[in-house]
Design a protein around this nucleic acid. Structure first.
Lengths: 211, 211
DNA sequence: GGCTACATGTAAGCGGTTACATGATTTA
DNA sequence: TAAATCATGTAACCGCTTACATGTAGCC
């Protein structure tokens, strides 16, 4: 967020669409992730960091050192607010909730047809691309190692499957349905990686025979 | 690279393995991408930025503003070197080449079994995960829009296929073979995305009927 | 009493993008 | 001769990570 511009124009803009359209509030993906979490239930910054480590870990994350400053910014923008709660006798915690403006902001983002990122960086493909500087045997080892790692991850994902049982049957929970679609994306991506690596290994071995 | 440490210990370390092991030279992926490019042929920083835009665009990229400072650093580390060439009458260009030390460094990286990144951030999956704040109809629109974009990208990739014709037959060019494996990874990833999105759309429509 | 989890922050640094800045060469 | 491309750099900023820093609460 550009604070210089904010101080000048923030109070002139009369509604949030204006603020966004004018680029006065610069929303990044993390901000929407936080709004999304708060749209489901109130929580503290600490709770959010736990959510990133568990529920969202397959497709987004953030450390507490990034979360806390963002919470401050979002509060200043009145997209979220908090009240203090006491744990035990003295420990204060800030329990955040989403405001009407925050919910509007989240909905606008959900309504966006975002463009595909022009590139997805992939260090392994880079390594493979330049692997003519090692032996064909080692290239096979690289591929096999990678395959083993993806197979392990796939296995871990598959163990989560029983969570999604009553999905097609009523009560047709919307949140759980979305979770399932995203989960399916994770499974299919890992399966594809395994397929690709298996195919690569097989091509390498065919090639070795012909030499 | 931490220059404070460099000045203290650089000249004590007698070989490059030591330097790396001691963490005196901090190599990032971009450095290896540059070494990889130079291992194939000599080129200028400008040439590299063109390579990132074309050949490597599927899995890595870098702008010239990042490339030029890196070239300076790598030159200081003696992993690459350059000579000046004159274009026209006065325009100097720096033609870089990889040194023996640079080639050794690249080979060491190629020999690494790198661990899978713990997370691949995916903004679309985040959007889908929180899409219970828009209508089921809009969720289908989001998915269809995404599908169209992946189909277009897949189409563009498939048009490149004729480049890889003589791959299985001799002369068994190593570089071209690696290019093909990486290309295949791109194709398969896009196919998987299309499959997933198609499956999601179908699940959404089934669900609508049951309501 | 000691360990783990809860809870909230700040500072330094890195990789990367966008914008600023300059000038020569080639091609239509 | 104008526009596109070639060619090399710097500055400001952003998102994110790692490390620094502090203290409470609950459990064994």
């Amino acid at each position: 967020m550009n604070c210089a511009i904010l101080t000048k124009e923030y109070f002139i803009a009369t509604n949030y669409e204006q603020i966004i359209r004018k680029g006065i509030i610069n929303m990044g993906t993390l901000q929407y992730a936080i709004l999304g979490l708060l749209s489901r239930k109130d929580m503290t910054g600490y709770d959010m960091s736990k959510e990133f480590e568990t529920t969202l870990s397959g497709f987004w994350n953030a450390k507490h050192s990034q979360i806390y400053p963002e919470l401050k910014t979002l509060t200043e923008q009145s997209l979220i607010e908090y009240h203090l709660e006491i744990s035990g006798t003295v420990l204060e915690k800030k329990v955040y909730s989403i405001t009407a403006a925050g919910r509007e902001q989240l909905t606008q983002w959900e309504n966006n047809f975002n463009k595909l990122k022009p590139i997805a960086k992939d260090e392994f493909r880079l390594q493979l691309f330049f692997s003519d500087c090692v032996s064909p045997e080692h290239r096979i080892e690289l591929l096999k190692n990678r395959l083993a790692q993806h197979e392990e991850r796939l296995q871990q994902l598959r163990e989560r499957k029983p969570e999604f049982q009553n999905l097609i049957a009523p009560p047709l929970d919307e949140e759980e349905f979305n979770d399932y679609l995203v989960y399916l994306g994770g499974i299919m991506r890992e399966e594809e990686k395994c397929d690709w690596l298996t195919k690569c290994i097989s091509l390498c071995e065919d090639r070795k025979k012909k030499n």
